[in-house]
């Protein structure tokens, strides 16, 4: 059985910053735009290395998205940086018309997603962004789980042609994935093999799923964990293969249960192989101020709740047999 440990904690946004610098070194067409949040997005290293390829837009996200779309004409590969809320909800129509419908090669890079933004509260804690972005035809949606995966994803999206939404977070979290990993867009990562229940997790919930699986093992429950870092396009084969073995599934994400990864999985299962599913996600509410860990506990986005949902979904499985 795969065991995961960590020696340090780092924020996924720093993985983005490191990946952006690397992508910039690899390809001179990579440019970055930021709406007055350079420090929060960890863009300093890129700016220092490539000052002429950085555009400070000021607090004007709509203009930033439009300019990014325009910059693709002539071959630039723009990476926009701001908080997830201002990367999606605030600029939805700009993304819809000028980026998605126009099929422009823009990388929308969004930090401080979800509850783990913490003390700033619900105005800044978007829990609807995955839903907003995945509904746009042609949009790729990626939510990596740690520093190394975020860095690898950032490098990978620079090499991919088409609009991408890359979502990451603020707090430091365990670094447990391979620093030399090759990130494949749309390809799930089988974190842990098991036969009793499938846990599908994305973003910060992957580490929680690993913790849950180890505790479930003590109860004699053998959980399989799949990391879906690419919510769209969804690796349907990986999910179907796993539920074919386990017959039940828990989805875990730092997002509203409406519109998130869980719903994408439910859509897949209802049209292919119907198995019971439980959701670890925010129950259609806004967030609030607090420490990230306190919020994750209060809203049930932790290992404890994954364990409860795993037990529940296993008990429901008999109804489907």
């Amino acid at each position: 059985m795969a065991r995961y440990t960590y020696t340090e904690k780092k924020d996924t946004r720093s993985g983005f910053g490191a990946g952006l610098l690397e992508a910039g070194k690899k390809n001179e067409n990579v440019v970055a735009l930021c709406a007055d949040l350079v420090g929060s997005l960890k863009m300093e290293a890129f700016i220092k290395e490539f000052p002429e390829r950085f555009i400070q837009t000021g607090i004007a996200e709509a203009n930033m998205m439009g300019m990014a779309a325009g910059m693709t004409i002539g071959g630039a590969i723009p990476f926009t940086g701001t908080f997830a809320n201002f990367s999606t909800g605030r600029v939805y129509d700009q993304i819809r018309q000028s980026i998605a419908y126009s099929n422009k090669n823009v990388k929308i890079c969004a930090s401080h997603a979800g509850l783990t933004l913490g003390e700033d509260g619900a105005t800044h804690q978007i829990l609807e962004d995955i839903g907003l972005m995945k509904m746009l035809p042609g949009m790729t949606v990626i939510n990596p789980c740690d520093y190394n995966q975020t860095k690898a994803a950032t490098i990978a999206i620079a090499e991919y042609e088409g609009p991408v939404y890359l979502r990451f977070g603020r707090p430091v979290v365990p670094v447990f994935t391979d620093p030399d990993q090759k990130f494949e867009i749309g390809k799930a990562w089988l974190v842990r093999q098991g036969k009793d229940v499938t846990i599908i997790a994305t973003g910060h919930l992957v580490w929680e799923a690993i913790q849950a699986a180890e505790k479930l093992e003590e109860e004699g429950i053998d959980a399989e964990i799949i990391n879906i870092h690419t919510i769209k396009p969804l690796d349907e084969d990986a999910i179907l293969k796993s539920v074919g073995k386990t017959g039940c599934i828990v989805t875990a994400e730092e997002h509203n249960k409406i519109g998130g990864l869980g719903e994408s999985v439910a859509r897949l299962l209802t049209t292919t192989k119907l198995v019971p599913q439980e959701f670890v996600a925010v129950n259609d509410s806004f967030g609030e101020s607090g420490k990230p860990a306190e919020l994750m506990t209060k809203y049930g986005l932790d290992a404890e709740n994954i364990i409860l949902k795993a037990r529940k979904v296993i008990s429901r499985r008999t109804l489907f047999l």
Binding site: G66, M67, G70, S98
Partner: peptide, 18 residues
């Protein structure tokens, strides 16, 4: 570039100019 939803084209033109 697609257009129709108003107000977006100046940003796009600036981007192309950049």
């Amino acid at each position: 570039m697609s257009s129709g939803s108003l107000g977006q084209g100046l940003s796009v033109a600036i981007g192309a100019a950049l």
